[in-house]
């Protein structure tokens, strides 16, 4: 019984983290048709910015701890905004209209450049921002002790998902974006300002990536390479859910998160294969992912 409860809790926590990481990726893909390999680097930049800012705050001041949560989010927003605008205006803008696969490779080049840029800016020593994590304490559920920060992350992730959904479904801008996801040519013909929408989307995506990194930073040691590790995970979640679908990313994250937690508790030897196993299974039966739409074939 305890372990079933543990699977549910661990699975939801992991899923909420996966969703945070995957949301930005799926938004960018949905609107811009760019599968952004550099998404992991945005995650890492968010983590580094947050860890260095929060670390600085606690090393130099005796201010109240709650400010550190604002710093965490603030660092991610600023970092995501700056990097997003620079990359979109400075690089991607020159490349629009190229082959989808070529765009993947362009973002791969970007990933290589950003990884070393981070090393130049932050070095290779670890950064820590554990205060926000340990400050919240923990909750005991029988033998199981759960970190409150992790539980809060589930809430944040759910709120963020709802917010994104409401924005896409309920606002004008969201409607324009959805129109672009459905059919770019027609929306352009209808007078949508594609350039502006692309900038907004890309910056939103990078900020989401950076936010995921910033919210993860307190629980980990921020070191080189953390971005590389999340790329494939985020890709898998997005592909399982259906590219470009926020709901799909949420379901994909839950599926992967729960399967992984179940594997850790009941069949640790399969843990290494879970993500790829789930992905292969889903794609075998739903070639476009769970919530992907089958596109009409154009002649």
């Amino acid at each position: 019984m305890t372990s079933l409860l543990a699977v549910l809790i661990d699975g939801s926590i992991y899923a909420s983290w996966l969703f945070l990481v995957a949301a930005g990726l799926t938004v960018i893909y949905g609107v811009m048709r760019i599968l952004n390999m550099a998404h992991g680097s945005f995650y890492a930049i968010g983590a580094y910015s947050a860890a260095s800012l929060v670390g600085w705050y606690f090393n130099n001041g005796v201010g109240p701890a709650w400010i550190s949560y604002l710093l965490l989010v603030g660092a991610a927003l600023v970092a995501g905004l700056i990097v997003g605008v620079i990359v979109e205006r400075g690089l991607l803008r020159l490349m629009y209209g190229r082959d989808e696969i070529l765009m993947v490779i362009i973002t791969y080049a970007l990933l290589l450049i950003l990884e070393d840029t981070m090393k130049i800016v932050w070095g290779v020593s670890p950064y820590f921002a554990y205060q926000p994590y340990s400050e919240l304490g923990r909750t005991s559920l029988g033998l199981l002790k759960v970190s409150n920060y992790d539980l809060a992350l589930v809430g944040v992730s759910a709120l963020l998902g709802l917010g994104l959904w409401a924005w896409l479904e309920r606002t004008n801008q969201g409607k324009v974006l959805r129109a672009m996801i459905h059919d770019r040519e027609i929306s352009v013909a209808m007078g949508v300002n594609v350039r502006l929408m692309f900038t907004i989307t890309f910056v939103l995506g990078t900020t989401l990536g950076a936010l995921a990194g910033a919210l993860t930073a307190p629980a980990i040691s921020v070191v080189p390479g953390i971005g590389i590790e999340v790329i494939v995970l985020a890709f898998a979640v997005v592909v399982i859910g259906g590219l470009g679908s926020i709901g799909g990313a949420a379901v994909g994250a839950l599926l992967v998160g729960l399967s992984r937690a179940a594997a850790v508790h009941y069949a640790p030897e399969f843990e290494l294969f879970v993500i790829y196993g789930v992905m292969s299974l889903v794609l075998a039966f739903r070639p476009e992912g769970l919530f992907g739409r089958t596109l009409a074939r154009k002649i």
Binding site: L35, E100, I101, V104, V232, F235, A236, V239, L243, L272, F273, Y276, G277, M279, S280, L283, P287, E288, G289
Partner: peptide, 21 residues
Amino acid sequence: TRYRDIFFAMLSLAFSMILFG
């Protein structure tokens, strides 16, 4: 061969990673 584009890419990646595992 039932898959195209990014789905082919990701599925081929998945098989390669399963061998790695």
